[in-house]
Amino acid sequence: MYRVVEIEEVRDEAKDVKTFFFRDTSNPQPGQFYMIWIPQVDEFPMSISYIGELKGFTVKKIGKGTTKMHSLQKGDKLWLRGPYGKGFKIEEGKALVVGGGTGMATLAPLAEMLGNKDIIIAAKSEDEIIFRNRFKENVFFATDDGSLGFKGFATKLAERMIEEDDYKIIYTCGPEMMIRKMVDIAKERKIKIQASLERYMKCGIGICDSCTINGYRVCVDGPVFSEEILFSMDDLGRRWRAKSGKSISKEENHDIGEKSQ
């Protein structure tokens, strides 16, 4: 069963990224996702980026469904099911939030709830940075080309900040290679970590086995996983599943890009 929501506002966030605001009866946790159906076009998973009374999806134009969604305006409708999956759990102590690309959309409602935290917002370049003004303090930017903030990968900046501060927990979301690196850093430095993963998802309800990584279903067991599982995930950043379920390597996976949700 779907329920229909009406888009109340569309906001440009960055190059090819827009936020769609709507009202809905559901009560999502940060890190949870919905399945958005645009009839006769596509259905795709999308994590929630605003969880207040006015809820939001922050969407990058990538595939057929998200491209169509970008053409929608105030007053247009979305068909939803969800929220699904397990969201973030708030841990004690100072947090480091590391968001790459639109991965920051998944982390933003969590970051707003955290007390003591630093936030890294990263992207390839300045024009792809989202939520530049959403957080008032403790925000650090990283861009691959140095057009805003630290020049280089988010993981490099994170390593430097971890050297200098006593973080108790890392929250991260973004390209899987970035997550892999953050998990390795957390393991080496014995810091807790939670990461929201993205894998090719079909049913969204834990039956089809499409988004499974090392026996864990991203849609039901995740999308947010904690260190005890992340440290054991051999395939994270190494092996993927094609739409057919075939196991493929990084080289065979042409879809690895930014987090498309």
Binding site: M1, M35, W37, D42, E43, G204, C208, D209, K246
Partner: peptide, 18 residues
């Protein structure tokens, strides 16, 4: 899962209705 001769991607979403 049922396995066939060739690799198959299956249908596009929506593939399931609750």
């Amino acid at each position: 899962k049922s396995i066939g001769m060739e690799e198959r991607e299956g249908y596009e979403n929506p593939v399931v209705y609750e």
